[in-house]
Design a protein around this nucleic acid. Structure first.
Length: 494
RNA sequence: CGGGGUGUAGCGCAGCCCGGUAGCGCGCGUCGUUCGGGACGACGAGGUCGUGGGUUCAAAUCCCGCCACCCCGACCA
C-alpha cells in the first residue's frame, strides 16, 4: 500500500493506480488483468448496484440469472457478434485434471469437451437462445430482464477497474414486439444511466450515439454516455444498444402477432460495469486521494474522537457514540473510529485517502464548547458546528457536497470542451489541450479512421439533440471538405 | 504481437558496473511513553535474492536460456 499519493500532475496513470490501491478499492490478483475487490471497493459497488437496481425496477425490469458458460457454437450464430468477441474469449476445453507419472498436476487429455465452452464475454447469445423458447405470442412480450453478473474479456491490456479481464456488471436484455418499442427502451435505459451518472455519481455525461466503427458487435445502434476524466481523456461510462432483429434472427426467435403472422422479436441490451468505480475515481479524485459523492459513499461521515488525557477519554468516547447514534437515526452512514491503533492525524489522512465526504472530530476542547469540528473532503474546509442540530447541518452539507462535486466536474468538462473549425486547430487541441473537441464530420468511416490514425482521437459519440448548443447544425467537414450534418464529439479515450 | 522496464522480507526500494557474512524505509510483534494533521523509544520476528543452467575457491552481483509482471501502442465496458 502506498503511504503517500503521487501527485496527479506528474503521471496521471500512476496517480490513478496509487490512489485506487491506497484507498483499498482494488488490488492486483494473481491472475493477469483481474483484480481483487476488497470491502472498500465492493461496498461502493454495492451502493451503485442498489441505486441502479432501484431505477431498473422502477422502469419495469426484473432480475434473473443466466449461465457463465456459453457453448462455442452459440457465439458463432450472429456474424458481427462473433467478429467482435472472438479475439478476447476465455475458452474451457476440458473438465478434469490428473496427476501424471511425475506427480505433476496436468489437464487430463481424456476429459476433452465435445464442444468448447466460452466464459461469457456478454450474454446476448445464451439469453436469446433462451428467449426463443420463452416467446411464442405477442402476449409473451415484452420481456424486460436484467442480470447482475461477472463477465470475462481477455483484453490485451488491462487497468484496474477501467479494463480488467474479469469484471462485474449488469446487463439488461429486453425483447419487444415492435421496433419502436425497442428503440424507446434503448433510450429509456440510456436516460437511466445518464441520471445515475449525474445524480448519484455527480459525474456529468454526454448522451450520444456511437459511429459504426465504435458500435457494439451485433447492434444496429449503440447509445452511450461519455464522461471526461481529469487528465482530459474520455471514458465510455455506459452503453445501451438497439439490437434490431439481429439476435432474434440468429436464434430463430419469433412471435405470432395479433394478426396471426410470425415476426422476429426486437431486442435491446444495455450495461454498466465496475468501470464506473474507475470513472468515479478519475472524475473527483485529487492529490490527497479519492473523493466520493455522499450519495454513494459507504461511509458518509467518519467520526474521529480525540481522546486526550486519561481522564477525558471516556467522556469523549461517550459523546462520540451519542453523536454517531443520532446521525444513524437521521439516516446518515456513519463510522466511528474509536480504535486505539492510530492517532487522530493518521485517521484524518486515512479518511481523506478513502474519500469519506465528511470528517467529524471531537475532543475535550469541543465538548467544553458544545461543538464538533466538521471537515469537508471536497473543499478541505473545516468549521466548528454546534452539537445542537448537528444531524440537520450534516444532512444539508452532504447534499451540498453532492451538488458541489457535480458542479465542479461540470465546470471542468465545460472548460475542457472546445470547438474546432479547421483540422490544424483540431490537431493542436487534441495534442495540447485534450478534452472534448467538437468538430464537423462527414459521416464516413474513412474520415473517422484517418483522424484516428493521425491524432489518436476517436469520435466518442454523435451527441443527441440538446446536449450541446448548435452541434446539430449542418456544416462542412474540414478534413474531407464534404458536408456534415452536425458536430460530433472527438477525444482521446481510455 | 511490437517497443521499453522491473523481478531482493507483507509493501516500496538500495545493493549488481567493480563477485567475498543480504541491507534500508514502511508495515508486523512485545513493552513503555504518547494521542487537536500520517507519534517516539527499546527490544524482536521476517529473505531458497523470479527460475534453470554456466563461469568461479566463492554469484543477488558476471554469461546464456526461460518465466512472470508493469508501462507505451494495436483491441476494448
Amino acid at each position: 500500500m502506498a503511504d503517500k499519493i503521487t501527485p496527479r500532475s506528474e503521471d496521471y496513470a500512476q496517480w490513478y493506480v496509487d490512489v485506487v490501491r491506497a484507498a483499498r478499492l482494488a488490488e492486483y490478483s494473481p491472475v493477469r488483468g483481474s483484480m481483487i475487490i476488497p470491502p472498500n471497493g465492493y461496498e461502493l459497488w454495492e451502493n451503485m448496484r442498489d441505486g441502479l437496481d432501484g431505477m431498473f425496477k422502477a422502469t419495469g425490469h426484473r432480475n434473473a440469472y443466466f449461465p457463465l458458460f456459453i457453448p462455442q457454437s452459440f457465439l458463432a450464430r450472429e456474424a458481427a457478434h462473433v467478429e467482435g468477441f472472438a479475439k478476447e474469449c476465455a475458452v474451457v476445453t476440458h473438465h478434469r485434471l490428473k496427476l501424471d507419472e511425475d506427480g505433476a498436476l496436468i489437464v487430463d487429455p481424456e476429459s476433452k469437451l465435445e464442444e468448447p465452452l466460452i466464459v461469457r464475454p456478454t450474454s446476448e447469445t445464451i439469453i436469446w437462445d433462451t428467449y426463443s423458447k420463452w416467446i411464442q405470442s405477442w402476449r409473451d412480450l415484452p420481456i424486460l430482464i436484467n442480470q447482475w453478473a461477472n463477465v470475462v474479456r481477455w483484453e490485451m491490456r488491462t487497468r484496474l477497474f477501467l479494463r480488467t479481464s474479469e469484471f462485474l456488471w449488469q446487463e439488461g436484455h429486453t425483447a419487444h414486439a415492435t421496433e419502436r418499442e425497442a428503440i424507446e427502451e434503448t433510450r429509456t435505459m440510456l436516460d437511466v444511466y445518464a441520471t445515475f451518472a449525474e445524480e448519484w455519481m455527480a459525474m456529468p455525461v454526454i448522451k450520444g450515439v456511437k459511429t459504426e466503427a465504435e458500435r457494439f458487435a451485433g447492434a444496429k445502434d449503440t447509445y452511450c454516455i461519455e464522461a471526461l476524466m481529469q487528465d482530459g481523456k474520455a471514458l465510455q461510462a455506459g452503453t445501451s444498444h438497439f439490437l434490431g432483429q439481429n439476435f432474434a434472427r440468429a436464434f430463430d426467435c419469433t412471435f405470432q402477432n395479433q394478426s396471426g403472422e410470425l415476426e422476429h422479436v426486437w431486442a435491446t441490451s444495455w450495461g454498466v460495469s465496475t468501470r464506473l468505480i474507475g470513472a468515479l475515481v478519475m472524475t473527483h479524485g485529487d492529490d490527497k486521494g479519492i473523493v466520493l459523492p455522499p450519495r454513494l459513499a459507504p461511509v458518509q461521515v467518519a467520526i474521529v474522537p480525540i481522546l486526550g488525557k486519561e481522564d477525558t477519554r471516556e467522556a469523549v468516547l461517550e459523546t462520540a457514540r451519542q453523536i454517531a447514534r443520532d446521525l444513524v437515526h437521521a439516516g446518515i452512514r456513519v463510522f466511528l473510529d474509536d480504535s486505539d491503533q492510530h492517532r487522530p492525524g493518521w485517521k484524518f489522512a486515512e479518511y481523506e485517502v478513502q474519500g469519506v465526504p465528511l470528517r467529524l472530530a471531537i475532543g475535550p476542547r469541543d465538548i467544553e464548547n458544545g461543538v464538533v469540528e466538521l471537515a469537508r473532503r471536497d473543499t478541505g474546509e473545516k468549521e466548528s458546528v454546534a452539537m445542537e442540530g448537528l444531524a440537520q447541518v450534516i444532512s444539508a452539507t452532504l447534499s451540498e457536497i453532492q451538488r458541489g462535486l457535480y458542479d465542479r466536474a461540470k465546470a471542468f468538462r465545460e472548460a475542457s470542451t472546445r470547438t474546432a473549425d479547421d483540422y490544424p486547430a483540431f490537431q493542436r487541441l487534441i495534442e495540447e489541450e485534450g478534452g472534448f473537441v467538437l468538430m464537423h464530420w462527414d459521416g464516413t468511416a474513412e474520415t473517422e479512421e484517418r483522424i484516428k490514425t493521425q491524432t489518436m482521437a476517436t469520435i466518442r459519440c454523435i451527441p443527441l439533440p440538446g446536449q450541446f448548443e448548435g452541434t446539430d447544425e449542418p456544416g462542412v467537414d474540414p478534413v474531407s471538405g464534404k458536408p456534415s450534418e452536425g458536430r460530433v464529439v472527438f477525444a482521446k479515450s481510455y
